[in-house]
Design a protein around this nucleic acid. Structure first.
Length: 310
DNA sequence: AGAATAACCTGTCTGC
DNA sequence: TGCAGACAGGTTATTC
């Protein structure tokens, strides 16, 4: 559920707490949260290695690219005895997956049912607090990762985000150049928007909303769209996500909340997502849905006609 | 190259 | 009321 606007809202909530704080200890309540894809291969020593490594880590920032988030740690503040050779340093990586949450707590707050990991933190002024990673479905992930050079810019990113393209809010994001690249590919525009190696941060909700805003059919092939239409769609994605950030993100239930457990309200502004069978707010035509690029997609057949030619 | 599938999970909702 | 089945905001590996 969390796409770029939701992750950004979490990042903004976390930043003032985390930056300048030191990690005192980490408790992993469910080892599966350390896995990325093949959860079964989380080896027995992974939890011990992680919990032994992070104490002492001094948080220097709260960063995000697309849906990936990480907290860079001060050089030398982790692995006190034998620091592995990592040129650019380490970071605590946090990916929310489908149902992940980062919550700020004090030690005596009741522990939520789906809490998978608890970081005991101490702020610069000595105040203790907890960063808890809550995740119902365990598609999320936490880890201690090296910082590496990311795609498309000299920026450092956590290793798990090494193959993630810049998101539409980064300086290195080039909508026109990207539109030209996509013109040379033969894929549904929706598949391109969802491909985090092309442009990051866009998920199923904002892909559909961006396409609706731009008046482009989700199944339209990029090689059959004018470059300007592709570029407009990318600008639309940025614009719709910017509005969602302002609204605190989109949530349909309690699965997406900010660090204080509060929901966003952008769902009230959605144009087509989840509105199959309802009249289009722009023209009154009935919104349709079907599977495109492997995901349930929503569009207005009148506002988003299939593009056959230029 | 790109599409389709399955896998990783838990919870909720729908229909019989 | 119970139960099977479908479905959910993401990512990755594999197969065709």
């Amino acid at each position: 559920m969390p796409e770029l606007p939701e992750v950004e809202h979490v990042r903004r909530g976390l930043e003032p707490w985390a930056v300048g704080s030191r990690i005192e200890s980490l408790r992993v309540l469910d080892p599966r949260i350390l896995g990325t894809t093949s959860k079964r291969t989380v080896d027995a020593t992974a939890v011990d290695r992680l919990t032994a490594s992070v104490p002492g880590g001094l948080v220097e920032g709260a960063c995000r690219r697309g849906k990936f988030m990480w907290l860079p740690l001060a050089t030398g503040s982790v692995f006190p005895d034998s620091a592995p050779e990592v040129p650019a340093g380490w970071a605590v990586a946090l990916h929310l997956g489908m149902s992940g949450q980062v919550r700020i707590h004090t030690a005596d707050d009741a522990v939520h049912r789906h809490t998978r990991a608890v970081f005991d933190m101490r702020s610069a002024d000595g105040a203790p607090w907890q960063m808890r990673f809550v995740d119902q479905r365990i598609f999320g992930h936490i880890g201690l990762e090296p910082l590496v050079t990311g795609l498309g810019s000299p920026r450092l990113v956590a290793a798990s985000a090494a193959r993630i393209a810049p998101d539409p809010f980064e300086d290195g994001f080039d909508a026109e150049g990207l539109a030209r690249t996509l013109k040379g590919r033969r894929t549904a525009i929706k598949a391109a928007l969802l491909d985090q190696g092309v442009v990051s941060g866009i998920g199923n909700i904002y892909a559909d909303e961006a396409l609706f805003a731009a008046g482009v059919h989700p199944a339209a092939r990029t090689d059959r769209l004018r470059i300007s239409r592709i570029e407009n769609t990318l600008h639309a994605a940025r614009a719709v996500m910017a509005r969602a950030i302002e609204a605190g993100g989109t949530s349909f239930d309690e699965l997406y909340v900010n660090v204080n457990g509060e929901s966003g309200y952008f769902d009230r502004s959605l144009g087509v997502y989840g509105k199959a069978g309802s009249p289009c707010t722009r023209c009154g035509e009935t919104v349709r849905s079907s599977t495109i690029a492997g995901r349930t997609s929503h569009w207005c057949p009148s506002c988003q006609k299939p593009q056959r030619r230029y």
